[in-house]
Design a protein around this nucleic acid. Structure first.
Length: 461
RNA sequence: GGUGGGUUGGCCGAGAGGCGAGGCAACGGACUGCAAAUCCGUGUACACGGGUUCAAAUCCCGUACCCACCUCCA
């Protein structure tokens, strides 16, 4: 069986056939680093991390490029509001994003390029487009350069839309455009309102990148004119990805073979960026849940399915995941084994993580039933590794909260162990009243005691 | 106006013509001093109305409601 994935461009599940056998080139649109990342933002990080891991497991040599947009209108606006340089805001939020990815065990991509570091590549691409008659410098002297949509007949092919059916944006500023649907490749420096640091030299005067061009330029630089998979959130399909494809192909680059788009996470029926958001930033959520629990929540849903976020659902996910952890603890530390075929089949089918997770739980049940769960536990670990959910992965220890937790646990253990010894003695003397009193006392502190064949164990409720 | 996606049991969430994915919760049983954990068992779900078929949650037609994108949102 081959790996199959849903291609947004053709709207069907297709066999994955890489351009070069044994290799996979992957480009994912990362974030605009303008504010603290929230749960919705990291979904794409987790989804494409699973893709990366699965491709590697399938034996592909993966080159995974995930960019960061570190200059744009919003960054400039916000930094002005906050009274700090735009590059400081972008850099701070970039680091915050990195911490969020680390806390969720999102493995780093091969490289994470930023827009500001690739202006020469963009200038080169824009020059090529102008030379081929697909782009033009604005006639209003603004220093903008636009892509000429009408010069590219297949514009709209990715999202299956006719240019003439598109509704012009309400707030569209025609500026020096020939057609309102033309989009900016290069934005001239607005001396009056924009800091000089936000402008780079170009043949069309000082300015900064248009949004779409950066991805075309960086994908081209690191993956070549043609590569295998391009990913991002559904909202990026249009205009961002449509424009990326148009400008790349108009410049003679075949661009991506497959397009993958992850669905939204909403809260109260709204996309997260619209809602209050604050409680849903990753640092906030991680105060209440472990990164591994949040990751499990995200992985348990299919990447193309809309998820309605709620803390109740996250609670449930955390409980479900603890069932797996309980099993692993009971089974003891083991080496990862082989992946069950059903799991492989599920993952091969467009990253069917929900079905894969079902296989995981089936294996946990079988292991719980078995006299010797070693083999089952090995298979469970192998599956968790692929999903980035292995609790023993050192990646989880890296987060600050985890280290503090360990210290706390050691302290509690020292305090509780004496009480537990006393309770064990009481139980041996069949003094149930005393034994239960101790258990109740500990429970009042929020610590659950359970008796196992190897003696009592405690855990924080 | 254009283009997509969705509506599944108490809840979360899969599936895409024919044995009720999986998890949580609930109930019964086993185990336990009692619990916990674990195991076993218990469910007549697929928005609505038609149709196709031996067989429809799944295909077709229609209706309702929800959501996303249409120039800088993952």
């Amino acid at each position: 069986m081959t790996f199959r994935l849903y291609d947004t461009a053709t709207r069907e599940v297709r066999d994955f056939v890489p351009l070069v056998e044994g290799k996979a080139g992957l480009y994912v649109c990362g974030l605009t680093v303008q504010s603290e990342p929230h749960v919705g933002h990291v979904r794409s990080g987790v989804n494409f991390d699973v893709l990366q891991r699965w491709l590697r497991h399938r034996g592909y040599e993966v080159t995974f490029i995930r960019n960061v947009t570190d200059i744009d209108d919003k960054i400039l606006a916000k930094s002005a509001e906050q009274g700090r340089p735009w590059f400081n805001l972008a850099y701070a939020m970039h680091r915050e994003l990195g911490r969020a990815y680390d806390a969720l065990n999102v493995a780093p991509p091969t490289y994470e390029p930023g827009a500001t570091g690739h202006v020469p590549e963009m200038v080169e691409l824009i020059t090529e487009l102008i030379g081929r008659g697909h782009a033009y410098p604005a006639e209003d002297g603004s220093g903008d350069v636009y892509f000429d949509v009408k010069s590219w007949p297949s514009y709209g092919e990715l999202t299956h839309q006719g240019v003439d059916d598109m509704e012009p944006a309400e707030d569209a500023d025609p500026r020096g455009k020939r057609d309102p649907r033309d989009f900016a490749l290069w934005k001239g420096w607005k001396k009056a309102t924009e800091p000089e640091t936000a402008a780079w030299p170009s043949p069309w005067g000082p300015g900064r990148p248009g949004w779409h061009i950066e991805c075309s330029a960086m994908a081209g630089k690191y993956l070549g004119p043609a590569f295998d998979i391009h990913g991002g959130g559904v909202d990026l399909r249009f205009p961002h990805h449509e424009n990326e494809q148009a400008q790349s192909r108009a410049a003679g680059r075949p661009f991506a073979t497959y397009w993958m788009h992850n669905a939204w996470i909403t809260t109260a029926g709204e996309k997260m960026s619209k809602s209050l958001g604050n409680s849903l930033t990753i640092p906030n959520v991680l105060e209440r849940y472990r990164g591994i629990e949040l990751r499990y929540y995200l992985v348990a849903a299919h990447y193309r399915s809309h998820v309605e976020f709620s803390f109740e659902a996250l609670d449930e996910a955390a409980v479900a995941f603890r069932r797996i952890e309980n099993f692993l603890e009971r089974a003891g530390v083991v080496e990862p084994g082989d992946l069950p075929q059903a799991f492989v089949d599920a993952m091969d089918d467009d990253l069917g993580t929900p079905a894969a997770v079902a296989v995981l739980f089936d294996m946990v049940r079988e292991g719980n039933r078995a006299d010797d769960p070693t083999v089952h536990a090995g298979q469970v670990l192998a599956m968790l590794d692929v999903l980035g959910l292995n609790p023993a992965d050192p990646a989880w220890a890296g987060s600050g909260a985890g280290a503090a937790d360990d210290k706390l646990k050691a302290a509690i253990d020292a305090l509780v162990v004496g009480l537990l010894d006393e309770r064990t003695a009481a139980r041996e003397a069949k003094n149930w009243a005393r034994a239960d009193a101790i258990r109740d006392q500990i429970k009042k502190a929020g610590i659950e005691v359970e008796d196992t064949p190897t003696g009592p164990k405690w855990s924080i409720d």
